[in-house]
Design a protein around this nucleic acid. Sequence first.
DNA 1: TAGTGTCA
DNA 2: TCCT
Length: 224
Amino acid sequence: MQNKSDTQTLDLFDDSSDEDQKAIPLAEGAVVLRRYALDFAENIMDEIHTILDQAPLKKMYTPSGLPMSVLSSSCGQYGWLSDQQGYRYTHHDPQQSKPWPDIPKSFMQLAQNAAAQAGYQNFIPDSCLINCYRTGAKLSLHQDKDERDFSQPIVSVSLGLSAIFLFGGLERHIRPLRYRLEHGDVVVWGGATRLAFHGIEPIVAGQHPLTGDVRFNLTFRKVF
DNA sequence: TAGTGTCA
DNA sequence: TCCT
């Protein structure tokens, strides 16, 4: 870990080899499980494509009408939506007028195991947001607070192109730590950090053997 | 912050 | 108010 140039940004640099699986603490209750999902990545991508056939990726707009750069879909009992009506979870994919696809068993197992590894037992998500990041796509610093249940953690799985993850504090003014998330990395945060501000810096153009020119992210939540 | 927003 |  070291500071970068004239900013006070805390940058975590990882010097371990690519195959190393290990837990890297970001804060109290927040950890990166490095390469945790690597062995399941091909299966996960197959499942993602099956889900997206049923519930296609869609560009979302903030309640103010501005476009988000990521493309989104969901699976599970609840799917996340954003439009002029606001942020919310629904049982149905409005574009398909049918329920969101189920969360595959392998996803449930991965999410539950990762949560347990991070110290959160019995995590049973009821929603999985699927975000697709193309070149330049980003997510500004925000909190996940549309859920009802803040006692359960967030489990985030990175696939394909890497991205700089921003992990801040409970208030927006706290300068976030920056961490480069790579294919197979899983981030878990909860407890005192459940409502931490977080985001993703613009994706740098690249190619990944499994996902091509994009990054996929799965975010598991317990909404209700 | 606060908003005809996708080029404010 | 997960955008600017």
